[in-house]
Amino acid sequence: MSKTAPQPVLETSASPNFGEMLKRLDWRRYVIYIGFVVVFVFFAILLHDQGFLSAVNLLNIFRQTATITVIAVGMTYVIACAEIDLSVGSTAGLSSVVTAMAIAQWGLVPGILAGLATGVAVGAVNGGLVSLLGIPSFLVTLGMMGIAVGAAQWVTASAPQPILDDTFNTVFGSGNIGPVPGLVLWSALFVAAGAVVLSRTKFGRQVLATGGNRTAADFTGINTKRIKFQVLLISGVVASVAGMLYAGRLQSGRFQWGTGDELSAIAAVILGGTSLFGGSGTVIGTLFGSLLIGLINNGLILAGLDSSQQQVVRGAIIILAVALARKK
């Protein structure tokens, strides 16, 4: 039995009806948003009496996640480029210390510049070793994680460095603009800039292409070494700004600021739908990943769980969300 009737081209199918469109919609890509709404509604109902929905509490969530959000914006670039940066938390700590000491010595502007310079230095060393020597970023930044926090502890002899400059403290973290905490504005600024650059500029596309298939990117004339260097540099600089936000909020520099933030930031980025293997990622997703973590922390505290219980529940929720979002 042989059929000869020519068939219409299969791949250019006619406009599908709504049901089919729903079926085709890749809901896994939106897991983070769905998860965010579900957790939010859940807490809103369960913790209504504990004031979860009060403006003060909601602003608090934003404020508490702001620094992680900032770090995670930089981390989105690194992971989308198929690299990792484990040194961001330590870099933030080192930058807070350097800023505090430089402000005490030379004043406000040199202090800020010194903080940024810390990020540039750490990022450039990370980026240089990864792109020029081809050492895996996991190892380079693992080493840098120890170096940065160790250096911060060393130069301060473990002592906190107070910051007495009120302008600095107000601008970086303690101040408000109207009802809105300055920290929230900082994170909004980084998210907005990060989102536009990643999705709407040549550089952003080249980062994604390099992470998606480095060989093909090379064959397309993209300088992938430079791209790898740049994402690690960005990550370092962004982490140093986060360090200054810690310094401003806590009015001091200390080597412990930022400890463990690398893991929260990586979790936020992956929850936000960026592929751990590179090639895809959105900064808006990262923002929601970070907010979701903040939401869970906040809700669990309001629910009266102690910190050990919080850790268990938070870990379980993160695994669940990533499991749902994974590709088949």
Partner: peptide
């Protein structure tokens, strides 16, 4: 596949 395209894009 290896040199010409970013398959996931």
């Amino acid at each position: 596949r290896a040199q010409g395209l970013v398959l996931e894009h």
